[in-house]
Design a protein around this nucleic acid. Sequence first.
DNA 1: TGCAAATCATCTGCTGTCAAACAGTCTTTG
DNA 2: CAAAGACTGTTTGACAGCAGATGATTTGCA
Lengths: 159, 159
Amino acid sequence: MATTTRTTGRGTAYFPQLAAERLDIALCRASAAVARAADVHAAREGLGVGQHLVLQMLDAVGPCSQQTLSEELRIDRSVMVGICDDLEQAGHVRRERNPRDRRSYAVTITDSGLGRLAEAQASIPAFLEDTFHTLTPDERGRLSAILVKLLQADTGSSP
Amino acid sequence: MATTTRTTGRGTAYFPQLAAERLDIALCRASAAVARAADVHAAREGLGVGQHLVLQMLDAVGPCSQQTLSEELRIDRSVMVGICDDLEQAGHVRRERNPRDRRSYAVTITDSGLGRLAEAQASIPAFLEDTFHTLTPDERGRLSAILVKLLQADTGSSP
DNA sequence: TGCAAATCATCTGCTGTCAAACAGTCTTTG
DNA sequence: CAAAGACTGTTTGACAGCAGATGATTTGCA
């Protein structure tokens, strides 16, 4: 028996060793696990992760073009189209042509969107606590700082 | 005006703030960037990331079934099929039916595979150095330890 | 003014991954 | 021994994400 770790049947599992040697793999596997948890949470909440981020950013910085949203949230343009479609259909944002540059939209959050955002925001702390409960607050802070530093090198990609 | 950061046009970018607030998002975005770098490196090296991991594990723990490889490397079974197909076609592994349980294979690394693995392994340190050059060795160690700890909670998924 | 180049949103095709169904094999149990 | 259930590898269908092309609009320059 040994119902604890039925992975190999051998005494030791190989994954921890790999994760220790290959920082890139550890990062990707951890991200996949967290992303899955986020998707589950979002599905239960009824608001997609991308939709939540868009509402949050619109609330924080005001009306934006879809391109600005894409760049700042690191979401592809063609994906952003669908996210804004869904949000607009739900009545959470309005898409108005920017009068100063009618190629771009001025995506604006509505009162409905503000209410939905407030609901969704309220559930985030519990989600984070649940997902990262194995880490101490100190470790979470360190992880955050390291990731921010790592991400700073990835702003403009290549010349 | 303001050709420095053309992301928003505003003075400050929103992404760093988001990354600081949402640990899950920061993790996913960093992972995406690293995964892309790994894919580029793998393409240049001519050996897929998954293929490399399989060879590495076979060399470390000996012949395995595809299921063991899948579970320990956190790669889906149906993806593992293609990886082993490619490796077998390249002559880097052999698939022999396990005589004790003919449902499973005993995937075995060949001499060709050992040679290919040695080549690929040699290029990993430079890749890691290049990808994580913004982090100090101390930060890399901390990140690794935190990720390992975070991943330990993800062994058996649900009861 | 008029025309070429750039920009914004969108659409299309492709790749890679995952969930679910399927065939072959082993184990259990009557 | 034989049927039912569980496990291994494989195939199929669906879906997210990304690169490139397209249409509408603005900007730059002769």
